[in-house]
Structure formats: C-alpha cells, structure tokens
C-alpha cells in the first residue's frame, strides 16, 4: 500500500510538469502582453504613456528574456510558494488569491455537503420506488433544478431574500463586516448570505447527482446477489445498504477527482451575479486582462487539485473494492 501510494506520487511529477508547460504556452499564445493591453487602455482614455516607463517595467518583470527562461523562473518559483506578481492588483499572486480562497472553500464545501445530503436519500428513494408517484415527482423537481439557468435562479433568490429577510444584496457578508476580522457577528452574517449561493450552485449538481445515484442503484438492484441477501432473511434496508448501495458507490468515489478543482473555480458566473468574494471572478478577470502570472498560477492550482483528487479517489477505490486491489489486468 505504501509503495503503491509512493508510486502514484511519482507519476504525478511528469503530469504536473506537462500541465505547467501547457498552461504557460496557453497564456503566452494570445498576441501581446499585459503592458500592451495596459497602454492601449490608457491611450483609449486619452492619456499619454511614457514608453520608457513601459520599457522599464518590461525589463523589471523579465519580459525581455526568452520564453523558456521565464517559464523556468515561474515554475521553480511555484515550488517555493512564489506564484509571481499580479500586475493588475499590484500584489503578489499569493495574496490576491489567498484572501478569497477562504470564502471559496466555505461556499463550495457547504455546497458539496448540501448536494450529498439531498441527493443520496432522494436517489435511493427513487431507485427503490421506481415508477412510483414519489419517483416521478422527485425526478420532476430534479429536472426543474437542472433546467433553470443558475444566474436566473441567483437573481430571483437574491430578490426574494432581500424582500423576505432583508438580507443585503450581493456579497457573502454585510457591507459593514468587509475587511474586518472574523468574529461571531461576521460569522452569522456569512451564514445569512451563504445559503443563497449554496442553493443556487447546488440545485443543478443535486439534480444530476440524483439521476446518477438512481441509475447506478437500479443497475445494482437487479443483480442476483440482492436476491441472495433477501433469501438469507436480510431486512430490506440493511440489505440495501450493505450490498447494492455499497456497490453503487464506486462511481461516486471516482467522481472525487472532479470535485476538488471545482472547490476553487466552480460557479464563476453565479459568483459574479451574486458578487461573491470567491476566486472564480478573479480567474475570469485575469484571463481578460492578460494578467498572466495570476491566470497561470490559478490554472496550475486547478491542475494540481485535479491530480490530487484523482489520487485520492484511486486510493479510496482500492480500499473499498477488493477487485481493484487484488486483481491485475490482462495483456494480449
């Protein structure tokens, strides 16, 4: 087990190196750089720019060096936690993202828990009561959640929350708490605002999740070992949990790899509509203004989390399913 995990870690190194090269090439691809966009912006506003200053900045940030050298500097910097400098915010990238990461993680984590808490019981009910009124009704609600665009739902919820509960529009805390250290009052205010993005982001995920839990469980319920368990005198619910439900969990665990990246990137549009101080809007903005180190580091972080997520789900699958743990593949 230890050597398996160790080997999985070794596999991660070339993957991450390749990802970083890909990310760096991608953000270099569009013509021009941040300073060009910056100069254009200033000129459009009718201001003059001192070309010497721009030239100075270019040298200062190493833009006169060849591309591979800049890549090398960026990549090695990341190893020691230096993600580069954001031109737009005029701050190190770490500080720009760091502040918002906390809120992002809270929103996403609560959303994931919300999704699971709703989706699993409903999925199990739907599968065990297939084609009943309850199944149809819950399926309908789920599809409704899937079909309504998130931004629309976000606007409606924001309006209703303001009408009924007087919650301030937008953001994750009341304006008076912005920039203050976390205290009890701020925490309550966060909770007051949190449920809107959680429901908005959660509905579509929940609906998809219900469908998948239901489909996977239905497949398993038809298997003969379920009949075996019933013939042994196993009470229905205990049998359901021990055999088919556990078998149907595989898909769900394989999914963890995809969940981690959404922890920091997910639901950008909703975040903009609700003006949440999460990381999603920053990524979009950074890509628009060619703030390359910010965007690049951000994408790198996504890649890193994906690799870690896949690792976690692989290890969990091996723990849970003896067939994966003990059986090898056949080669021709």
């Amino acid at each position: 087990m230890v050597s398996y995990i160790f080997k999985r870690f070794l596999y991660m190194i070339p993957t991450l190196v390749l990802t970083s090269i890909l990310v760096f090439t991608l953000i270099e691809l569009p013509p021009g750089d941040y300073f060009e966009s910056y100069v254009n912006e200033l000129r459009a506003a009718g201001e003059t720019v001192d070309p010497k200053l721009i030239e100075y900045l270019r040298t200062e940030y190493g833009f006169d060096k060849p591309i591979w050298e800049r890549y090398f500097q960026w990549a090695t910097g990341m190893l020691v936690g230096d993600f580069g400098y954001s031109f737009e915010y005029e701050l190190p990238v770490r500080e720009v993202i760091g502040d918002r990461l906390f809120f992002t993680i809270i929103v996403t984590f609560v959303t994931i828990i919300f999704t699971w808490l709703i989706a699993f019981p409903i999925g199990i009910y739907s599968a065990t009561h297939q084609y009943s009124w309850g199944d149809y009704g819950l399926t309908f609600l789920g599809l409704l959640g899937l079909a309504i665009p998130n931004f629309l739902l976000a606007l409606i919820m924001m309006f209703l929350a303001n009408e009924w509960f007087g919650t301030t529009i937008g953001g994750l805390v009341d304006p008076e708490f912005v920039g203050q250290p976390l205290g009890w009052a701020k925490f309550v205010s966060v909770l007051e605002h949190l449920w809107i993005p959680v429901i908005v982001i959660g509905t579509s995920g929940t609906a998809a999740m219900i469908r998948r839990v239901r489909a996977n469980l239905l497949d398993e319920l038809r298997k003969p070992y379920v009949t075996t368990a019933r013939a042994k005198g196993m009470p229905e619910f205990r049998g359901l949990m021990k055999y088919p439900f556990r078998m149907s969990l595989n898909f769900f665990i394989a999914d963890i790899g995809g969940i981690l990246p959404t922890v920091i990137s997910g639901a950008e549009i909703v975040a903009i509509v609700l003006s949440l101080e999460t990381t999603g809007p920053i990524l979009i903005q950074a890509l628009q203004s060619q703030d390359m180190y910010l965007a690049g580091s951000f994408l790198m972080l996504l890649g890193f989390l994906t690799v870690i997520g896949v690792l976690i789900s692989d290890i969990a699958l091996a723990c849970l399913d003896p067939r994966i743990r003990l059986q090898g593949g056949v080669s021709r």
Partner: peptide, 10 residues
C-alpha cells in the same frame, strides 16, 4: 497470454 498480477506492493 500475459497476465498482470496487481498487488499493493510494487
């Protein structure tokens, strides 16, 4: 046929 025997070690 070549069969790959999987294991936790190596």
């Amino acid at each position: 046929f070549l069969i790959k025997k999987g294991s936790w070690f190596g």
